[in-house]
Amino acid sequence: MANPLYRKHIISIPDFTREELELVVETAGRLKAAPRHDLLAGKVVASCFFEPSTRTRLSFETSIQRLGGTVIGFADGANTSAKKGETLADTIRIISSYTDAVVMRHPQEGAARLASEFSAVPVINGGDGANQHPSQTLLDLFTIKESQGRLENLALAFVGDLKYGRTVHSLTQALSLFNCHFYFVAPEVLAMPDYICEELDERGISYTLAESLEEVIPHVDILYMTRIQRERFDEAEFKQIQGQYILKAEMLNHARPNMKVMHPLPRVDEIEVAVDDTPHAYYFEQARNGVFARQALLALVLNETV
């Protein structure tokens, strides 16, 4: 029987069942332990980045090539027919007729869902505006499983910009299927949006709103840091807010031994460089895991069995 993600579009985390999330995580682990070079042999995958991205694009393209596939595409939308006024619907119709799958990033929300309605082949969302970035969530889940040995019943703190950070929204939605407890550590102006909290309430998932980063650290297995964007505040306000959400090495003295610090990167100064040398730092391994999680996705979408 074909795996449940075979020939499926990968658009949004709420589309996934718990079993499908576990399948990707488990497959990523297998591909990390024992690389495969044949799973995309003979396949051509389009990498369509209508807005620039470094990590996501390069890790997708690495994944495709490491699995034996070839890549066509573009790294920003400036030189495409979209610039001439072509609709995304038409662009995707054409590109999907050339390829076996389309990986895409687009500055507008809903672009990947729309593309999936016009594509003849699976569409994999590499980020649609402020909406979804499912491959980031999958690599986060894989990293959590790898570092903690499980996804169930963990305590996680999300720190920083929880209002605009699509990464933390999707990861919260995914982990709500695994009965985890959440601490949301953010200034009031950057608090987790109501709709996410309401979803948690409906699912009976417990969460704690906290203001002090230091007080939360001893209680969690995962400390997920995010960047507070300077441009959202005036300079004085930014300094005042950001100062409260900087992780320093000495704050980790009372952390659980298994506790890992994650960050979707790029970091600016919310994690001091000294943290890099502690056993809790896991964000660089997390970034590396992006390749394995994306390999798992591509392999499952393009092969009946992996």
């Binding site: 995304l88 869902r113 729309l114």
Partner: peptide, 12 residues
């Protein structure tokens, strides 16, 4: 209501 939603400019 989201002005950055893709549905505004596309044939859907």
């Amino acid at each position: 209501p989201n002005s950055n939603c893709i549905s505004h400019k596309e044939p859907v």
